[in-house]
Design a protein around this nucleic acid. Structure first.
Lengths: 287, 287
DNA sequence: GCGCCTTGCTGAACGCCGTTCATCTTATCT
DNA sequence: AGATAAGATGAACGGCGTTCAGCAAGGCGC
């Protein structure tokens, strides 16, 4: 970080006899990449720009980084640097998950277009395993059945990144100066919804107002709260079943199995419906 | 589709006097783009490849399409062609949402890398408004409070696309022939989890097995089910409050307000925690 | 102190990309 | 038949990721 400062022109000349130029490292490359990202945006983040930022030839980067893909992975890894979900507290799992989600969004918002970068990567490298493990621990402490924990993590992470991505796209769509600001945009959207033909768009006309009356912060929290409540429902169900099986531990023991079977039956009937819809698309849709 | 066939060399010469070549249209360009996407993948989907697919100069495309961005938008719009959420049935809102989610995933799976393409776009063009309106109608029929409907739609769409994206990345990671197949990969992951140091990764070791024992279909349905249960919780709460306010319609009427205030207080305390985490990152994390 | 060797950077090149523009072909209308 | 307008062409521009032969300089054995 601090050794970033002096690329001043004369430095190079003055310390010719010394240990010469600052050595290029992965760290410095990632630093420069973030600088370019913040200044230029994801679309203009290129190896050439990063090299220019460091005052170095493009090909020099390839001595430290196997290619752009690896550079993006390194940038992604930094998203999690020094960020570890807390020790699980079963009494506070709701709050802990909410805090985790907010922290994730905050980190994604810290760099321009960061969400776009993040969505292309999968958090499954060795160095990210500790983070993942502790996150799963949070869900485990909620009392979720084991097979749900992974999916719960997926769902939450997907929402965090997807939400941040939407914000990112929205922001980058009106970054030009003098363009309609956030608030103006919101107002024009409001009148747009009001002007729609109600018979054709009943829901949009009816709901448009109340959808626009909330900040992004509130909408985000609401999304997380929906997930939390869904998880709570499963956790309570699991607790109830555990209770039952403990009561008649030797009697039947099939309660849980029955539940699963019924659940999967409901799923399958719905799947047929979806398949029917899927199987008869209009001709124009083959693509 | 069928008029795609004859770019044969002599055709051009033979039918000189006829109605000549098939005219280039947006439709045909999008068709060709999908062909390229399926064959080459998202990374190699380029204007040049699309033009080549049509046997046409690159610049010809720009007479029908303003640029690559618009082409991608057109491709995205086709994802929704002939797909409309059903008439809401308040009795079956759970099933309807599950079916919608499954149909969405199925459509995203129909073309290679389609999820990657979709995530860059926002479903907010005029032609997509009918679809959006009917989707919101589904959530409205669930009895959700108005301000939640939009967020619910966001959450579901985000999960569908995020899940499909993850599948897409996973698939494209091992497309080489002779590479470890899905099943082999799963097994090697299983042994990998088992081999992890339990004191360092307690959750991964404990949960790895049960997480790997489910197909993607099951994991997807579970994710949607979590969302549905979360929505159900809010819907029940709203129904309860409506009931209460109807009972003592003139007496107090502050029940709902109280609830909201309490909710927001809980949120704010959590926000402070998140901010604390956010404000003191390790030095390496400035990026 | 001198030459060697290894390390790390340079500069040029390759092939691909999105986009633009002057030019030419061709279908249609008068 | 000739004029006109639409639409396709090919070359060009600038930028991209990546590769590779060569060069400069620090550290080492002698």
């Amino acid at each position: 970080m601090t050794d970033e400062l002096p690329p001043l022109p004369w430095e190079r000349a003055r310390r010719r006899p010394g240990p010469a130029r600052i050595p290029l490292t992965r760290e410095r490359i990632v630093d420069a990449a973030y600088t370019v990202l913040d200044r230029e945006g994801y679309d203009r983040l290129s190896m050439r720009q990063v090299a220019a930022e460091l005052g170095v030839a493009v090909s020099a980067l390839y001595a430290h980084v196997s290619g752009k893909d690896e550079l993006l992975e390194l940038m992604y890894a930094r998203l999690f640097a020094g960020w570890s979900p807390p020790e699980p507290d079963p009494e506070r799992w709701r709050e802990q998950i909410m805090e985790y989600a907010r922290a994730g969004r905050a980190r994604l918002q810290r760099h321009r277009d960061m969400a776009r970068l993040a969505l292309g990567e999968i958090p499954f490298t060795p160095e990210l395993l500790p983070h993942l493990d502790r996150l799963l621990g949070l869900f485990h402490a909620a009392g979720l059945p084991d097979h749900l924990v992974g999916t719960a993590g997926d769902l939450l992470s997907t929402f965090i990144e997807g939400f941040a991505l939407e914000e990112s796209i929205w922001n980058s769509r009106h970054p030009k100066e003098g363009e309609p600001s956030w608030q103006e945009m919101r107002e024009s959207l409001r009148t747009y919804f009001r002007g729609l033909p109600p018979e054709e768009f009943p829901s949009l006309v009816a709901l448009g107002d109340s959808m626009l009356d909330h900040t992004n912060d509130e909408r985000f929290d609401l999304g997380v709260e929906i997930i939390i409540r869904g998880l709570a429902s499963f956790a309570e169900e699991a607790a109830r079943q555990k209770e039952t099986t403990r009561q008649d531990t030797t009697r039947e023991g099939t309660t849980r199995e029955d539940d699963v079977r019924q659940d999967s039956a409901r799923r399958d009937s719905a799947r047929e419906d979806a398949a029917r819809e899927t199987k008869a698309p209009p001709a124009a849709e083959i693509g």
